[in-house]
């Protein structure tokens, strides 16, 4: 396969290692369990504002969210957004949109840009057609 690197053009897939579903970018916000302040810190907060600390029920919800994040993946026959790492290249992580049936590649972005856009946007998950980085943005 050839991966259309957004900075370096078409590069052979042999230079990349594959991780999988791009939803791995959407790591759930983890609480600081020892803090006592009420829940509800603003989402998409910059890093120096740690996510708000939750109550006990939130902990169960956070663990459930992590379980989904770590273990559950869609496995679509069709358009899929996935993470590729240019390990033998510029060490960029890419979000590649690929049709898993035809292997047609519909686009590739720097994962960092995708992650930053998500933070700046509404926090929509990295699902096909839903992220702020997708064409719907215009």
């Amino acid at each position: 396969m050839l991966i259309p690197h957004p900075l370096l053009g078409l590069r052979d897939a042999q230079e990349f290692s594959y991780l999988g579903d791009a939803t791995l970018i959407d790591r759930p916000a983890a609480p600081a369990p020892d803090a006592a302040a009420p829940a509800g810190a603003p989402s998409g907060a910059p890093p120096d504002d740690e996510p708000g600390p939750p109550g006990a029920t939130d902990l169960a919800a956070v663990e459930a969210a992590f379980c989904d994040y770590v273990f559950l993946r869609d496995n679509p026959a069709g358009v899929h957004r996935e993470l590729w790492y240019h390990e033998q290249g510029d060490r960029s992580w890419l979000v590649v949109t690929r049709d898993t049936v035809t292997h047609e590649i519909l686009g590739a972005e720097l994962a960092r840009d995708v992650a930053l856009a998500r933070r700046a946007g509404d926090g929509a998950p990295a699902m096909p057609g839903q992220g702020p980085d997708r064409e719907g943005q215009a």
Binding site: L8, Q14, E15, E87, Q88, G89, D90
Partner: peptide
């Protein structure tokens, strides 16, 4: 100039 792989070496 670019980084690539040569006989399994970076």
């Amino acid at each position: 100039a670019t980084r690539t792989v040569l006989h399994h070496m970076s």
